[in-house]
Design a protein around this nucleic acid. Structure first.
Lengths: 214, 214
DNA sequence: TTGACATTCGAACGTTCGTTTGATACGAAC
DNA sequence: GTTCGTATCAAACGAACGTTCGAATGTCAA
Protein backbone atom coordinates (compact mmCIF):
# COMPACT_ATOMS: atom_id res chain seq x y z
CA UNK A 1 0.00 0.00 0.00
CA UNK A 2 1.49 3.27 -1.06
CA UNK A 3 1.20 6.13 1.34
CA UNK A 4 0.08 9.65 0.52
CA UNK A 5 2.92 12.04 -0.38
CA UNK A 6 2.85 13.52 3.11
CA UNK A 7 3.35 10.10 4.58
CA UNK A 8 5.87 9.02 1.98
CA UNK A 9 8.54 11.12 3.56
CA UNK A 10 7.45 9.99 6.95
CA UNK A 11 9.00 6.57 6.69
CA UNK A 12 12.38 7.96 5.69
CA UNK A 13 12.04 10.52 8.43
CA UNK A 14 11.14 7.95 11.06
CA UNK A 15 14.06 5.78 10.05
CA UNK A 16 16.44 8.72 10.28
CA UNK A 17 15.18 9.64 13.72
CA UNK A 18 15.31 6.11 15.07
CA UNK A 19 18.73 5.59 13.56
CA UNK A 20 20.07 8.79 15.12
CA UNK A 21 18.86 7.77 18.56
CA UNK A 22 20.10 4.20 18.32
CA UNK A 23 23.47 5.03 16.73
CA UNK A 24 24.06 7.63 19.45
CA UNK A 25 23.17 5.14 22.14
CA UNK A 26 24.92 2.01 20.94
CA UNK A 27 27.16 2.96 18.04
CA UNK A 28 27.10 1.83 14.44
CA UNK A 29 28.13 -1.76 15.07
CA UNK A 30 25.95 -2.08 18.14
CA UNK A 31 22.74 -1.47 16.24
CA UNK A 32 21.16 -3.78 13.71
CA UNK A 33 19.02 -2.78 10.77
CA UNK A 34 16.27 -4.77 12.44
CA UNK A 35 16.56 -2.64 15.58
CA UNK A 36 16.22 0.53 13.53
CA UNK A 37 13.28 -0.55 11.39
CA UNK A 38 11.49 -1.91 14.41
CA UNK A 39 11.93 1.36 16.30
CA UNK A 40 10.79 3.25 13.20
CA UNK A 41 7.78 0.97 12.92
CA UNK A 42 8.51 0.02 9.38
CA UNK A 43 9.81 -2.97 7.53
CA UNK A 44 13.27 -4.51 7.52
CA UNK A 45 13.90 -3.83 3.87
CA UNK A 46 12.93 -0.18 4.18
CA UNK A 47 16.46 0.85 5.12
CA UNK A 48 18.01 -0.66 2.01
CA UNK A 49 15.19 0.67 -0.12
CA UNK A 50 15.39 4.26 1.09
CA UNK A 51 19.09 4.58 1.86
CA UNK A 52 20.81 1.82 -0.05
CA UNK A 53 22.66 0.35 2.90
CA UNK A 54 23.10 0.61 6.64
CA UNK A 55 26.36 2.52 6.13
CA UNK A 56 24.74 5.05 3.82
CA UNK A 57 21.97 5.53 6.37
CA UNK A 58 24.62 6.30 8.97
CA UNK A 59 26.22 8.94 6.77
CA UNK A 60 22.80 10.39 6.01
CA UNK A 61 22.11 10.72 9.73
CA UNK A 62 25.14 12.98 9.92
CA UNK A 63 24.19 14.93 6.82
CA UNK A 64 20.55 15.46 7.71
CA UNK A 65 20.50 15.43 11.51
CA UNK A 66 23.85 16.04 13.12
CA UNK A 67 25.19 18.72 10.79
CA UNK A 68 22.00 20.87 10.86
CA UNK A 69 21.87 20.69 14.65
CA UNK A 70 25.47 21.78 14.98
CA UNK A 71 24.87 24.49 12.41
CA UNK A 72 22.14 25.83 14.65
CA UNK A 73 24.62 26.04 17.47
CA UNK A 74 27.17 27.77 15.27
CA UNK A 75 24.68 30.24 13.87
CA UNK A 76 23.97 31.69 17.27
CA UNK A 77 27.45 33.12 16.99
CA UNK A 78 26.42 35.06 13.90
CA UNK A 79 24.04 37.21 15.86
CA UNK A 80 26.70 39.83 16.33
CA UNK A 81 26.54 42.41 13.59
CA UNK A 82 29.54 43.01 11.37
CA UNK A 83 30.71 46.17 13.05
CA UNK A 84 30.10 45.03 16.59
CA UNK A 85 33.06 44.42 18.86
CA UNK A 86 31.84 41.92 21.45
CA UNK A 87 34.00 41.29 24.50
CA UNK A 88 35.69 37.90 24.44
CA UNK A 89 33.75 36.92 27.53
CA UNK A 90 30.49 37.49 25.66
CA UNK A 91 31.61 35.33 22.77
CA UNK A 92 32.74 32.49 24.98
CA UNK A 93 29.65 32.57 27.13
CA UNK A 94 27.42 32.53 24.08
CA UNK A 95 29.34 29.67 22.55
CA UNK A 96 29.35 27.50 25.64
CA UNK A 97 25.73 28.26 26.31
CA UNK A 98 24.64 27.36 22.81
CA UNK A 99 26.73 24.23 22.92
CA UNK A 100 25.16 23.13 26.17
CA UNK A 101 21.86 24.83 25.41
CA UNK A 102 19.89 21.70 24.78
CA UNK A 103 18.65 20.29 28.02
CA UNK A 104 21.45 18.06 29.16
CA UNK A 105 19.16 15.86 31.16
CA UNK A 106 17.35 14.81 28.02
CA UNK A 107 19.24 12.20 26.12
CA UNK A 108 17.90 13.51 22.84
CA UNK A 109 19.67 16.79 23.47
CA UNK A 110 23.11 15.29 23.43
CA UNK A 111 22.69 12.87 20.59
CA UNK A 112 24.52 15.03 18.07
CA UNK A 113 27.49 15.56 20.38
CA UNK A 114 27.57 11.88 21.26
CA UNK A 115 27.53 10.89 17.61
CA UNK A 116 30.37 13.30 16.86
CA UNK A 117 32.43 11.96 19.74
CA UNK A 118 31.86 8.40 18.61
CA UNK A 119 32.84 9.39 15.11
CA UNK A 120 36.08 10.90 16.38
CA UNK A 121 36.92 7.68 18.19
CA UNK A 122 36.05 5.60 15.17
CA UNK A 123 36.48 7.81 12.13
CA UNK A 124 34.62 7.11 8.91
CA UNK A 125 33.81 9.25 5.91
CA UNK A 126 31.28 11.08 8.07
CA UNK A 127 34.12 12.68 10.04
CA UNK A 128 35.65 14.29 6.96
CA UNK A 129 32.32 15.88 6.14
CA UNK A 130 31.90 17.00 9.72
CA UNK A 131 35.43 18.38 10.04
CA UNK A 132 35.30 20.36 6.82
CA UNK A 133 31.71 21.56 6.93
CA UNK A 134 31.35 22.23 10.63
CA UNK A 135 34.40 22.08 12.88
CA UNK A 136 36.81 24.02 10.70
CA UNK A 137 34.50 26.95 9.83
CA UNK A 138 33.16 27.12 13.37
CA UNK A 139 36.58 27.36 14.95
CA UNK A 140 37.61 29.91 12.39
CA UNK A 141 34.50 31.97 13.11
CA UNK A 142 35.02 31.85 16.87
CA UNK A 143 38.64 32.83 16.48
CA UNK A 144 37.68 35.86 14.43
CA UNK A 145 34.99 36.81 16.92
CA UNK A 146 37.44 36.61 19.80
CA UNK A 147 39.88 38.83 17.93
CA UNK A 148 37.27 41.57 17.72
CA UNK A 149 38.02 42.06 21.38
CA UNK A 150 41.03 44.32 20.97
CA UNK A 151 42.50 43.16 24.26
CA UNK A 152 43.00 39.70 22.74
CA UNK A 153 46.23 39.72 20.77
CA UNK A 154 47.13 36.06 20.71
CA UNK A 155 48.83 34.66 17.62
CA UNK A 156 46.51 32.53 15.56
CA UNK A 157 48.10 29.22 16.53
CA UNK A 158 47.60 29.83 20.25
CA UNK A 159 44.14 31.19 19.72
CA UNK A 160 43.15 28.03 17.89
CA UNK A 161 44.41 25.87 20.72
CA UNK A 162 42.34 27.91 23.14
CA UNK A 163 39.22 27.43 21.05
CA UNK A 164 39.93 23.71 20.94
CA UNK A 165 40.21 23.77 24.73
CA UNK A 166 36.71 25.23 24.89
CA UNK A 167 35.45 22.49 22.59
CA UNK A 168 37.19 19.93 24.75
CA UNK A 169 35.37 21.06 27.86
CA UNK A 170 31.97 21.36 26.18
CA UNK A 171 32.30 17.88 24.78
CA UNK A 172 33.66 16.30 27.94
CA UNK A 173 31.02 17.73 30.23
CA UNK A 174 28.34 16.65 27.79
CA UNK A 175 29.56 13.12 27.44
CA UNK A 176 31.41 12.09 30.57
CA UNK A 177 28.28 12.07 32.68
CA UNK A 178 29.36 9.15 34.82
CA UNK A 179 32.60 10.69 36.10
CA UNK A 180 31.08 14.15 36.41
CA UNK A 181 28.15 12.99 38.53
CA UNK A 182 30.47 10.77 40.52
CA UNK A 183 32.78 13.68 41.30
CA UNK A 184 30.30 16.52 41.73
CA UNK A 185 27.66 14.35 43.34
CA UNK A 186 25.08 16.22 41.29
CA UNK A 187 22.65 14.84 38.74
CA UNK A 188 22.50 16.25 35.23
CA UNK A 189 19.75 18.84 35.54
CA UNK A 190 19.33 22.49 34.62
CA UNK A 191 21.12 23.64 37.76
CA UNK A 192 24.22 21.67 36.91
CA UNK A 193 24.05 22.92 33.33
CA UNK A 194 24.06 26.53 34.52
CA UNK A 195 26.94 25.77 36.87
CA UNK A 196 28.88 24.18 34.04
CA UNK A 197 28.26 27.11 31.71
CA UNK A 198 29.53 29.50 34.36
CA UNK A 199 32.55 27.35 35.14
CA UNK A 200 33.63 26.78 31.54
CA UNK A 201 33.13 30.42 30.64
CA UNK A 202 35.16 31.69 33.58
CA UNK A 203 37.80 29.02 33.30
CA UNK A 204 38.27 29.69 29.60
CA UNK A 205 38.12 33.46 29.95
CA UNK A 206 40.92 33.36 32.45
CA UNK A 207 42.84 30.96 30.29
CA UNK A 208 42.60 33.40 27.41
CA UNK A 209 43.44 36.49 29.42
CA UNK A 210 46.29 34.80 31.22
CA UNK A 211 47.88 33.74 27.98
CA UNK A 212 48.18 37.39 27.12
CA UNK A 213 50.19 38.32 30.12
CA UNK A 214 52.94 35.81 29.59
CA UNK B 1 50.17 -29.69 22.32
CA UNK B 2 50.58 -28.15 25.71
CA UNK B 3 53.08 -25.37 26.00
CA UNK B 4 55.72 -24.98 28.69
CA UNK B 5 54.62 -22.97 31.76
CA UNK B 6 56.39 -19.90 30.46
CA UNK B 7 54.44 -20.14 27.25
CA UNK B 8 51.20 -21.07 28.96
CA UNK B 9 50.71 -17.54 30.09
CA UNK B 10 51.80 -16.29 26.75
CA UNK B 11 48.59 -17.21 25.02
CA UNK B 12 46.45 -15.39 27.56
CA UNK B 13 48.86 -12.49 27.36
CA UNK B 14 48.82 -12.37 23.59
CA UNK B 15 45.04 -12.45 23.57
CA UNK B 16 44.87 -9.59 26.08
CA UNK B 17 47.28 -7.51 24.03
CA UNK B 18 45.54 -8.14 20.75
CA UNK B 19 42.16 -7.51 22.33
CA UNK B 20 43.31 -4.20 23.82
CA UNK B 21 44.58 -2.98 20.48
CA UNK B 22 41.54 -4.10 18.52
CA UNK B 23 38.93 -2.94 21.05
CA UNK B 24 40.63 0.45 21.16
CA UNK B 25 40.63 0.67 17.40
CA UNK B 26 37.18 -0.64 16.53
CA UNK B 27 35.22 -0.95 19.76
CA UNK B 28 33.69 -3.99 21.39
CA UNK B 29 31.04 -4.65 18.77
CA UNK B 30 33.36 -3.88 15.91
CA UNK B 31 35.74 -6.69 16.75
CA UNK B 32 35.03 -10.39 16.43
CA UNK B 33 36.53 -13.16 18.52
CA UNK B 34 38.01 -14.45 15.31
CA UNK B 35 39.77 -11.12 14.72
CA UNK B 36 41.29 -11.27 18.19
CA UNK B 37 42.43 -14.87 18.10
CA UNK B 38 43.85 -14.41 14.64
CA UNK B 39 45.84 -11.35 15.74
CA UNK B 40 47.00 -13.25 18.81
CA UNK B 41 48.02 -16.17 16.61
CA UNK B 42 45.99 -18.66 18.56
CA UNK B 43 42.80 -20.62 18.12
CA UNK B 44 39.25 -19.39 17.98
CA UNK B 45 38.17 -21.24 21.09
CA UNK B 46 41.07 -19.90 23.13
CA UNK B 47 39.10 -16.81 24.16
CA UNK B 48 36.27 -18.80 25.65
CA UNK B 49 38.67 -21.24 27.22
CA UNK B 50 40.84 -18.61 28.92
CA UNK B 51 38.29 -15.89 29.62
CA UNK B 52 34.90 -17.53 29.48
CA UNK B 53 33.38 -15.12 26.98
CA UNK B 54 34.15 -12.16 24.75
CA UNK B 55 32.52 -9.83 27.27
CA UNK B 56 34.63 -11.15 30.13
CA UNK B 57 37.73 -10.70 28.01
CA UNK B 58 36.75 -7.07 27.48
CA UNK B 59 36.41 -6.46 31.21
CA UNK B 60 39.69 -8.25 31.80
CA UNK B 61 41.40 -5.90 29.32
CA UNK B 62 40.34 -3.03 31.56
CA UNK B 63 41.36 -4.78 34.74
CA UNK B 64 44.75 -5.96 33.54
CA UNK B 65 45.78 -3.40 30.93
CA UNK B 66 43.89 -0.11 31.16
CA UNK B 67 43.75 0.28 34.93
CA UNK B 68 47.47 -0.47 35.49
CA UNK B 69 48.45 1.97 32.76
CA UNK B 70 46.33 4.73 34.23
CA UNK B 71 47.67 3.90 37.68
CA UNK B 72 51.15 4.52 36.35
CA UNK B 73 50.04 7.95 35.23
CA UNK B 74 48.45 8.68 38.59
CA UNK B 75 51.43 7.47 40.56
CA UNK B 76 53.69 10.08 39.04
CA UNK B 77 51.70 12.51 41.14
CA UNK B 78 52.81 10.72 44.30
CA UNK B 79 56.39 11.75 43.78
CA UNK B 80 55.90 14.80 45.95
CA UNK B 81 56.77 14.03 49.55
CA UNK B 82 54.16 14.48 52.25
CA UNK B 83 55.46 17.74 53.57
CA UNK B 84 56.22 19.28 50.22
CA UNK B 85 54.15 22.21 49.03
CA UNK B 86 54.38 22.16 45.25
CA UNK B 87 53.13 25.15 43.32
CA UNK B 88 49.89 24.48 41.48
CA UNK B 89 51.67 25.04 38.19
CA UNK B 90 54.05 22.20 39.00
CA UNK B 91 51.21 19.86 39.79
CA UNK B 92 49.30 20.68 36.64
CA UNK B 93 52.33 20.46 34.42
CA UNK B 94 53.24 17.08 35.89
CA UNK B 95 49.72 15.79 35.48
CA UNK B 96 49.32 16.90 31.90
CA UNK B 97 52.75 15.68 30.99
CA UNK B 98 52.19 12.25 32.50
CA UNK B 99 48.81 12.05 30.83
CA UNK B 100 50.29 12.89 27.45
CA UNK B 101 53.62 11.28 28.25
CA UNK B 102 53.23 8.28 26.06
CA UNK B 103 54.29 9.13 22.54
CA UNK B 104 51.14 10.48 20.98
CA UNK B 105 52.20 9.54 17.50
CA UNK B 106 52.21 5.88 18.46
CA UNK B 107 48.76 4.45 18.45
CA UNK B 108 49.68 2.04 21.23
CA UNK B 109 50.30 4.98 23.53
CA UNK B 110 46.75 6.21 23.44
CA UNK B 111 44.96 2.89 23.60
CA UNK B 112 44.08 3.19 27.26
CA UNK B 113 42.66 6.69 26.85
CA UNK B 114 40.75 5.63 23.76
CA UNK B 115 39.27 2.65 25.56
CA UNK B 116 38.20 4.83 28.46
CA UNK B 117 36.59 7.35 26.15
CA UNK B 118 34.73 4.60 24.32
CA UNK B 119 33.61 3.20 27.63
CA UNK B 120 32.25 6.60 28.65
CA UNK B 121 30.25 6.81 25.47
CA UNK B 122 28.97 3.29 25.84
CA UNK B 123 29.08 2.46 29.54
CA UNK B 124 29.33 -1.12 30.75
CA UNK B 125 30.39 -2.64 34.04
CA UNK B 126 33.96 -1.72 33.15
CA UNK B 127 33.15 1.97 33.66
CA UNK B 128 32.05 1.45 37.27
CA UNK B 129 35.33 -0.24 38.03
CA UNK B 130 37.22 2.51 36.26
CA UNK B 131 35.34 5.36 37.90
CA UNK B 132 35.71 4.02 41.42
CA UNK B 133 39.21 2.62 41.21
CA UNK B 134 40.85 5.26 39.04
CA UNK B 135 38.97 8.45 38.23
CA UNK B 136 37.59 9.22 41.66
CA UNK B 137 40.81 8.70 43.67
CA UNK B 138 42.89 10.43 40.99
CA UNK B 139 40.77 13.56 40.98
CA UNK B 140 40.72 13.59 44.75
CA UNK B 141 44.50 13.28 44.84
CA UNK B 142 45.00 16.07 42.34
CA UNK B 143 42.61 18.32 44.22
CA UNK B 144 44.55 17.79 47.44
CA UNK B 145 47.84 18.43 45.68
CA UNK B 146 46.57 21.68 44.23
CA UNK B 147 45.41 22.83 47.64
CA UNK B 148 48.95 22.48 48.98
CA UNK B 149 49.60 25.63 47.01
CA UNK B 150 48.42 28.12 49.61
CA UNK B 151 47.46 30.64 46.97
CA UNK B 152 44.72 28.27 45.80
CA UNK B 153 41.69 28.75 47.98
CA UNK B 154 38.90 27.50 45.77
CA UNK B 155 35.97 25.71 47.36
CA UNK B 156 36.05 21.99 46.71
CA UNK B 157 33.19 22.01 44.20
CA UNK B 158 34.89 24.57 41.95
CA UNK B 159 38.24 22.90 42.35
CA UNK B 160 36.76 19.60 41.18
CA UNK B 161 35.30 21.25 38.09
CA UNK B 162 38.71 22.70 37.30
CA UNK B 163 40.33 19.28 37.60
CA UNK B 164 37.64 17.88 35.30
CA UNK B 165 38.46 20.65 32.84
CA UNK B 166 42.07 19.48 32.81
CA UNK B 167 40.92 15.92 32.17
CA UNK B 168 38.68 17.18 29.40
CA UNK B 169 41.57 18.81 27.58
CA UNK B 170 43.96 15.90 28.04
CA UNK B 171 41.38 13.49 26.72
CA UNK B 172 40.26 15.69 23.83
CA UNK B 173 43.73 16.44 22.55
CA UNK B 174 44.58 12.76 22.78
CA UNK B 175 41.55 11.56 20.93
CA UNK B 176 40.34 14.26 18.58
CA UNK B 177 43.33 13.94 16.31
CA UNK B 178 41.43 14.66 13.14
CA UNK B 179 40.07 18.09 14.17
CA UNK B 180 43.29 19.04 15.92
CA UNK B 181 45.48 18.30 12.91
CA UNK B 182 42.94 19.94 10.66
CA UNK B 183 42.98 23.13 12.73
CA UNK B 184 46.62 23.35 13.71
CA UNK B 185 47.91 21.97 10.44
CA UNK B 186 50.44 19.96 12.42
CA UNK B 187 50.90 16.22 12.60
CA UNK B 188 50.89 14.38 15.90
CA UNK B 189 54.57 14.26 16.73
CA UNK B 190 56.71 15.08 19.73
CA UNK B 191 56.79 18.77 18.86
CA UNK B 192 53.01 19.00 18.90
CA UNK B 193 52.92 17.07 22.17
CA UNK B 194 55.25 19.55 23.80
CA UNK B 195 53.20 22.42 22.44
CA UNK B 196 50.03 20.84 23.80
CA UNK B 197 51.54 20.27 27.23
CA UNK B 198 52.59 23.91 27.38
CA UNK B 199 49.21 25.13 26.17
CA UNK B 200 47.09 23.01 28.53
CA UNK B 201 49.30 23.82 31.49
CA UNK B 202 49.20 27.55 30.89
CA UNK B 203 45.54 27.62 29.95
CA UNK B 204 44.59 25.65 33.05
CA UNK B 205 46.92 27.56 35.35
CA UNK B 206 45.32 30.80 34.32
CA UNK B 207 41.88 29.29 34.66
CA UNK B 208 42.70 28.32 38.22
CA UNK B 209 44.30 31.61 39.19
CA UNK B 210 41.61 33.66 37.55
CA UNK B 211 38.91 31.84 39.43
CA UNK B 212 40.46 33.14 42.59
CA UNK B 213 40.21 36.75 41.71
CA UNK B 214 36.53 36.78 41.06
C1' DT C 1 54.77 -46.59 31.31
C1' DT C 2 50.83 -45.04 32.90
C1' DG C 3 47.45 -41.83 34.46
C1' DA C 4 45.68 -37.19 35.26
C1' DC C 5 45.54 -32.65 33.80
C1' DA C 6 45.91 -28.46 30.92
C1' DT C 7 45.83 -26.62 26.48
C1' DT C 8 45.17 -26.64 21.52
C1' DC C 9 42.77 -27.84 17.64
C1' DG C 10 39.05 -28.94 14.22
C1' DA C 11 34.46 -28.87 13.42
C1' DA C 12 30.11 -27.78 14.14
C1' DC C 13 26.22 -25.61 16.69
C1' DG C 14 22.20 -22.29 16.46
C1' DT C 15 21.58 -17.19 15.89
C1' DT C 16 21.86 -13.02 14.04
C1' DC C 17 23.65 -10.14 10.59
C1' DG C 18 23.02 -7.00 6.08
C1' DT C 19 21.14 -7.56 1.87
C1' DT C 20 18.26 -9.28 -2.04
C1' DT C 21 14.25 -10.75 -4.42
C1' DG C 22 9.61 -11.11 -6.06
C1' DA C 23 5.02 -10.45 -4.99
C1' DT C 24 1.62 -7.10 -3.56
C1' DA C 25 -0.82 -2.66 -2.78
C1' DC C 26 -1.41 1.90 -3.82
C1' DG C 27 -1.87 6.65 -6.17
C1' DA C 28 -1.38 9.31 -10.21
C1' DA C 29 -1.38 9.90 -15.32
C1' DC C 30 -3.40 8.95 -19.54
C1' DG D 1 -9.90 1.15 -16.76
C1' DT D 2 -5.44 0.46 -17.81
C1' DT D 3 -0.68 1.50 -17.20
C1' DC D 4 3.24 2.97 -14.76
C1' DG D 5 6.10 4.07 -10.94
C1' DT D 6 6.64 3.99 -6.00
C1' DA D 7 6.39 1.97 -1.54
C1' DT D 8 5.51 -1.99 1.56
C1' DC D 9 5.69 -6.53 2.79
C1' DA D 10 7.09 -11.53 3.42
C1' DA D 11 10.54 -14.63 2.79
C1' DA D 12 14.82 -16.12 2.00
C1' DC D 13 19.89 -15.67 0.97
C1' DG D 14 24.80 -16.51 2.27
C1' DA D 15 28.02 -14.83 5.52
C1' DA D 16 29.61 -13.91 9.96
C1' DC D 17 28.75 -14.10 14.72
C1' DG D 18 29.73 -16.14 19.81
C1' DT D 19 29.88 -20.36 21.76
C1' DT D 20 30.28 -25.43 22.51
C1' DC D 21 32.09 -30.06 22.19
C1' DG D 22 35.08 -33.94 21.72
C1' DA D 23 39.23 -35.48 20.06
C1' DA D 24 44.15 -34.72 19.82
C1' DT D 25 48.41 -33.24 21.91
C1' DG D 26 51.34 -31.87 25.15
C1' DT D 27 53.43 -31.84 30.27
C1' DC D 28 54.17 -33.58 34.69
C1' DA D 29 53.73 -36.75 38.67
C1' DA D 30 53.41 -41.38 40.21
Amino acid sequence: MKKAPAEQEETKERILEAAEALFAERGFEGVSVRDITQAAQTHLSAVNYHFGSKKQLYVEVFRQSVLPKMRNVAEKLSLFSEDEEPKAEETISLMVRSFLSRPLHELAGIRAVTLIAKEMLHPSEALDMLANEHIKPTISRIGKLLLRDRSITLPESELNLCVLSIFAQCMYFTIARAPVTLITGKSYDEDLKEELVRHITRFTMNGLKGSLEQ
